[in-house]
Simulated scan of single mutants.
Amino acid sequence: MMDAPRSPPEHPHAIEARDLTKRFGDDTAVEGLDLTVESGTVYGFLGPNGAGKTTTMRMLTSLTRPTDGEAWIEGNPVSDRDAIRSSIGYLPEEPPVFDELTGREQLEYFGRLRNLPREEMTDRIDDWLDRFDLAGDANKRIDDYSKGMRGKIGLIQALLHRPDVVFLDEPTSGLDPRAARTVLDVIAELTEEGQTVFLSTHILPVVEELADVVGVLYEGDLVTEGAPAELTARMAAEEGTTLEDVFLSVTADRDDVRLAGDESSVSDE
């Protein structure tokens, strides 16, 4: 007999997860994740390669079905894709684009999928293309784009319908410093407007600059969580004062435990 569905949160947060778990056969990618992200904040999601970050984001965006546990976006269960579709935007590390389309055609296609009015969609696309210095390349095929240009199109695509909750996986990957700065400015502006950003990145200075709360995932477990200043303060007694020190400390500690217990690790980005 299947377990009865857990009740939704009484006071909905932007993102909430309870006992979220994903197993692939005998391997556990994410184990019993409890997570709460407040509206209008940036949640920095850190972890080494193979920690389960992408699997977590795919579960939170309804792209991967959890083995156990539940999650909600603004009070709506992620199991109900129709209920959360308009509320979320997702930029995976490899943006879902069609090489045979031009940049503009890709964005128009996505805008139509989101049922955006034609004139409004065109205005938004033009604004974003200008913002990311893509206006001059908008009518070129994506097949001819650099990795950074593809990433910009993917980010615009994720933001075009102005979702309440945005999931970004390495949004500055492949970008030059000027473009990366634009992305960081955009993320800050989103939260100023009340949107929520779930940000996964390996670039710790980005997290230190933008995140209100940081969570470190390691081998599928959330091993530490808190405001960046709070986490670095915890390290002060150990002569560590940066978020990098925190990251290295908590993952090293877990390595010691794993090796002592001869536990297996899971390979999942």
Rank of each mutant, 00 (worst) to 15 (best):
S7E: 15
G44A: 07
R162Y: 12
P12I: 03
T232Y: 02
R258H: 12
T224F: 05
M149P: 02
I187K: 02
L35M: 04
F198Q: 03
T242P: 10
P77C: 07
M2H: 15
I88L: 00
W72C: 03
T102C: 00
P48F: 00
F45K: 00
P9K: 08
R141C: 00
P48H: 06
F24S: 08
E16H: 01
M59L: 04
V214Q: 01
R162N: 12
I187W: 11
G261E: 15
L184C: 11
L113K: 00
E192R: 15
L129C: 07
G47D: 01
T232W: 05
V213H: 01
E94Q: 14
A83M: 04
R112Q: 14
K147C: 06
H161P: 05
E119T: 15
P96Y: 11
D3P: 05
E192W: 14
L259H: 12
K152V: 11
P5D: 12
H13I: 03
V250D: 00
L129W: 07
R112T: 14
T182I: 15
G148W: 03
D176W: 08
S7K: 15
D126I: 03
H161R: 09
F247C: 08
L46E: 01
D143W: 12
E192S: 15
D126G: 01
T64N: 04
V223N: 07
S265V: 14
Q157E: 03
V266H: 11
E219C: 06
I156C: 08
S265C: 09
Y109G: 03
S200P: 12
F45W: 00
L184D: 10
P12Y: 02
E74C: 11
E120V: 13
E119W: 09
N139H: 15
A4N: 13
R118I: 11
I187Q: 09
L160S: 13
F98S: 05
G52F: 05
F45M: 05
V197W: 02
L243A: 09
T191Q: 13
L231D: 02
L35Y: 02
D27Q: 14
R65I: 09
P12F: 04
A4H: 14
V197K: 06
I15E: 02
A135R: 14
S87K: 15
R258C: 06
L210N: 00
T241R: 09
D133F: 01
A4T: 14
H202R: 13
V207E: 06
Y43T: 02
E16M: 07
V257L: 13
W128R: 12
G89W: 04
L60S: 02
D127G: 10
D19Y: 05
T196H: 03
P8W: 00
E10I: 14
A188N: 13
L134T: 05
T28M: 10
L175C: 09
L63I: 02
L129V: 03
R131S: 06
I88N: 04
